[in-house]
Structures are given as structure tokens and as C-alpha cells.
């Protein structure tokens, strides 16, 4: 029993209850049954409960993009959605992109182009870039810049990120 020296002189009681739900999620191709509290976001599920810390928390409010994951192939902010709402979904995080030792081409390109410095926004940028490629809407460099603008990079690696995505789109085309 942990000593709680400063607790007021009254018994602790559960003044509330948060529902627990059983859901099935496929995370990085591994299907698992997970018990989640209703108030747990996908981001906190990944980071705090499953210890998949590759997905980052940069604001917790959809204002930075660091938490971007691919949900059923689509890029979303994992901080702004409840895990309980995604029973049956497939989530791909940055940890699930490489095939064994073989990095995803976008990961390779991030290293080659030095498209990051501190690396904290990088998993979100990479997932976002892959989401962008899947969406197939970016045609020009301006499109790419606009469609990568949901991911803030405080180190300012934007121009190198642009190169990564341009290259990837060219690879797609050829």
C-alpha cells in the first residue's frame, strides 16, 4: 500500500465511473482485443496504454499533426478521436511502416533528404506524407505544401519534406 501522507481524512471513493469497452483493433497488422476507457483517445491508447510511442503528442488538440496515423489507410489526428469509436479498425503507425529491416521508401527519403532535425514531428509527417500519396490529390509543389500543412515542423524542415513527397509522387507515377 502506498503511503498517502497528505490525503484528507476521508475514505477514497469512486465518485464516478468511466465505462470500459472491449474493442478489436488491428495495429500495424496485429489484431488485438483491447479494453479501453471511453475517454481514452487513440493517441493516448497508443502512447500511454500500449507504449507505442512512435506516434507523438505535440498539442493534443489537432493543431500540429504530430499524432497523425493512418486509420484504415486514411491520415487522421489520433488525438481527436476516441479509441472506443474505432472497433474493428486498422491502424498503421510509424512503427508499422518498415517491412522488417527494410524501411518504407518515404522513411528512407526522410533520412536521405534530412527532412527533420529534432525528429519529433517526423512520425506524423511520414504518416501524413503516405496519407497524401494514398489520397492522390496533390499535383503541384503548391498542392503538396498545402496538403502537408497539417503537420507543423518547428525545426523548419519543410523544404526537405517537400522534396521527399515530390520524389515519392514521381516514383508513384513511373
Amino acid at each position: 500500500m502506498i503511503e498517502k501522507p497528505h490525503r484528507p481524512n476521508q475514505a477514497a471513493e469512486a465518485a464516478f465511473s468511466i465505462q470500459k469497452h472491449k474493442i478489436i483493433l488491428t495495429i500495424n497488422e496485429v489484431e488485438q482485443e483491447i479494453k479501453v476507457d471511453a475517454w481514452t483517445t487513440v493517441l493516448d491508447l497508443l502512447r500511454e496504454h500500449l507504449h507505442l510511442t512512435g506516434t507523438k503528442k505535440g498539442c493534443d488538440h489537432g493543431q500540429c499533426g504530430a499524432c497523425t496515423v493512418l486509420m484504415d489507410g486514411t491520415r487522421i489526428n489520433s488525438c481527436l478521436t476516441l479509441a472506443v469509436m474505432h472497433d474493428g479498425a486498422e491502424i498503421t503507425t510509424v512503427e508499422g511502416l518498415a517491412k522488417g529491416e527494410q524501411l518504407h521508401p518515404v522513411q528512407e527519403a526522410f533520412i536521405e533528404q534530412d527532412a527533420f532535425q529534432c525528429g519529433y514531428c517526423t512520425p506524423g509527417q511520414i504518416c501524413s506524407a503516405i496519407g497524401l500519396i494514398n489520397e492522390g490529390k496533390a499535383k503541384t509543389p503548391e498542392d503538396i505544401r498545402d496538403l502537408m500543412s497539417g503537420n507543423i515542423c518547428r525545426c523548419g524542415a519543410y523544404n526537405n519534406i517537400l522534396k521527399v513527397v515530390q520524389e515519392a509522387l514521381e516514383r508513384e507515377r513511373s
Binding site: G65, T74, N77, L80, T81, S128, L132, G150, N151
Partner: peptide, 9 residues
């Protein structure tokens, strides 16, 4: 409006 990630959700 917003960002692609937000518009996707």
C-alpha cells in the same frame, strides 16, 4: 479550412 487530417475525420 482546417488540415487534411481534420477534414478526413
Amino acid at each position: 479550412g482546417a488540415s487534411p487530417q481534420l477534414r478526413n475525420k
